[in-house]
Design a protein around this nucleic acid. Structure first.
Lengths: 353, 353
DNA sequence: TTGTACGCGTTATCAT
DNA sequence: ATGATAACGCGTACAA
């Protein structure tokens, strides 16, 4: 016979890569039919289909992802791009959990990549990344999702991507987020409702997505309550614990110190807790503290933090779903998920002693 | 000319997948030569080499990973397998950071997969995973790294893997860890040195790698100090914050309560801090608390935790390095890294008021 | 030092 | 409903 080899290995000292030919032979059909069955395509008689399926798991055959990728441009790989400092946070961990769960459901895998938003040749890095890993889609988190050149590079590479909690909406992009403005508004209103009249606020980094919206919400709530926006009560933070320490110090050193402090995220709120210990302030009797995210720390500190829960895992799942379905090829879209106020022991009416 | 197609696209409405043929043509060489240059193989004159390299980045050519994988069995993918509950911890986050950094250095990518150690068909899941993703190597974390069937499955699949911080050494495996026993011994000795005579201990889950070694170290230190091991002072925990709450409660409810508590990890130590608030105990004046890991929480709580730092990122890097170099094809090996005692504000001599 | 030709395991086209 | 056969892009014996 001619050496027209339908492949298979006999010299088995190496395990035994079962391939589509083996299955075809065993089921007495062509490889194309096997392919159809494996990929759930129509036009196969139920008889052959079952016969093939039997062969498949008799041989415990798995399609080779490389061959598949090479032939079909499908990688089943979702890329998660996150900024270096954020990579270790509870927020990111929760995101990953959600993505993982959703990926698993459809046989996708998650590739994690940490980037440095400050890196001057960030674009190069990303280009190399998408080029060398053939991602099915990419998920961008803060603050990466607001870096213009990065977005342009991604667009140019024709890699679908969705942003989670971006700062500003941008033409033609698809975003997943909560209404940070409304959420911060709710929290501030809650504090006002408690009776607080001097409410401090610790901002997040100016380039950071949700941070600005939260500031807006804070302002709006004050305005609506007929309370003035007091410059000195609104200090800059960076979403890090350390920055929260500094911010807290500044707020608590004020001549007229606030009776409540609303921090832009939980890490900074936890820092305020620590700082108030140094100032010998009892929480919540002498000072109310609120955070944002409902991350792990919110429940680990004492007293536990009143905070605003983002449905982080849910957001992650939605983002992956969008990518998998490859919708809105061009049209922008925005998925707005619900937030939730979580009241714990760190807040109370002012002046209760 | 014959239709022996060196491929390339002219009808460019789709971007333009530059392939090795394009580069070859432009550099006036064969694809084999391009391949050699791209892969840094020898036997290429420096003249041609530079010519090829110019062509490469003139066209900004990137080898197609699928084709490469299909032809060479190289995936450049490292798999990180972690248990579901652990996935969100600071420990895992730190591990990832280290792995990411190391992977990047050699053009590898990190695929994260969360598994449920309790899942009865865990083995199936893992088999499917390695079969469908062609991992270059796999990293196992606690408690997955001590699940026998899992290890057997991995062995059978011929996927190289290394374990991080496993419980027991197993024949023929390669492990990366610190000396948990020694570390716990050091911490306990430190507390003894402070003058504590009743030292509580919160164990980690029995099936969890490092947990048992730490218990051993605790016992050894007591013995060496001529102190008895007191049953009621040693309570079970699960490495979770919640379990720490329970354990702390039990220890602090004792008739003769301990003057110091050494928790198996930081999360549980943080919980003890919270519980002692409820018992109105001043830390460290009335109770010393020590943790383990030096994770983020250790610095976020107040007072900050005295703890034992594991070089987590370093361990991660070492693990990846091992996988990349594919060493010790069969021989076992163990890399022992150094730990470090980090003394902060949560510990002090007993009875100082 | 350099090039030719084939194999890797799929998917897809186009007949049957 | 099913099958022969050509891509897909790269590595690599083997030849030159």
């Amino acid at each position: 016979m001619k050496s027209n080899r339908p492949k298979s290995r006999e010299n088995s000292d190496t395990p035994k890569p079962v391939n589509i030919y083996d299955v075809a032979k065993r089921a007495n059909v062509s490889i194309k039919t096997v392919s159809r069955v494996v990929n759930g395509l129509p036009n196969v008689s139920t008889a052959t289909r079952t016969r093939v399926m039997e062969a498949v798991d008799a041989l415990s055959y798995r399609p080779n992802p490389f061959a598949r990728g090479l032939a079909s441009e499908q990688s089943f790989l979702i890329g998660l791009l996150c900024d270096l400092p954020a990579a270790g946070s509870g927020y990111m961990a929760a995101l990953q959990m959600g993505m993982l769960a959703r990926c698993r459901k459809d046989g996708y895998h998650l590739i994690v990549e940490s980037l440095d938003a400050e890196n001057p040749n960030l674009v190069q890095v990303v280009q190399a990344l998408v080029a060398t890993s053939n991602l099915h889609g990419v998920i961008l988190t803060s603050p990466l999702c607001d870096v213009r050149e990065l977005i342009e590079a991604l667009k140019a590479s024709h890699t679908p991507f969705v942003r989670i909690a971006p700062d500003k909406p941008l033409a033609g992009l698809v975003d997943v987020r909560i209404d940070d403005r409304k959420a911060a508004y709710d929290m501030t209103s809650y504090l006002v409702g408690l009776g607080h009249r001097r409410i401090g606020f610790i901002k997040g980094p100016a380039d950071h997505g949700d941070a600005n919206a939260r500031l807006d919400g804070y302002c709006k709530a004050l305005a609506q309550a007929g309370m003035p926006f007091i410059e000195e009560l609104c200090v800059q933070g960076l979403f890090t614990y350390q920055s929260g320490l500094d911010a807290g110090e500044r707020l608590l050193s004020l001549k007229k110190r606030p009776t409540a402090i609303f921090a832009g995220n939980d890490d900074m709120a936890a820092a305020v807790l620590a700082t108030s210990q140094r100032f010998n302030l009892k929480i919540p009797q002498q000072l109310s503290v609120a955070g944002f995210d409902d991350s792990l720390v919110a429940q680990v500190v004492w007293p536990r933090l009143t905070t605003c829960r983002q449905p982080i895992e849910e957001m992650a799942k939605v983002a992956v779903s969008i990518l998998i379905q490859r919708p809105t090829e061009d049209g922008a879209s925005e998925r707005l998920l619900d937030h939730e106020l979580v009241v714990r022991e760190s807040t109370a009416p002012p002046g209760v002693l």
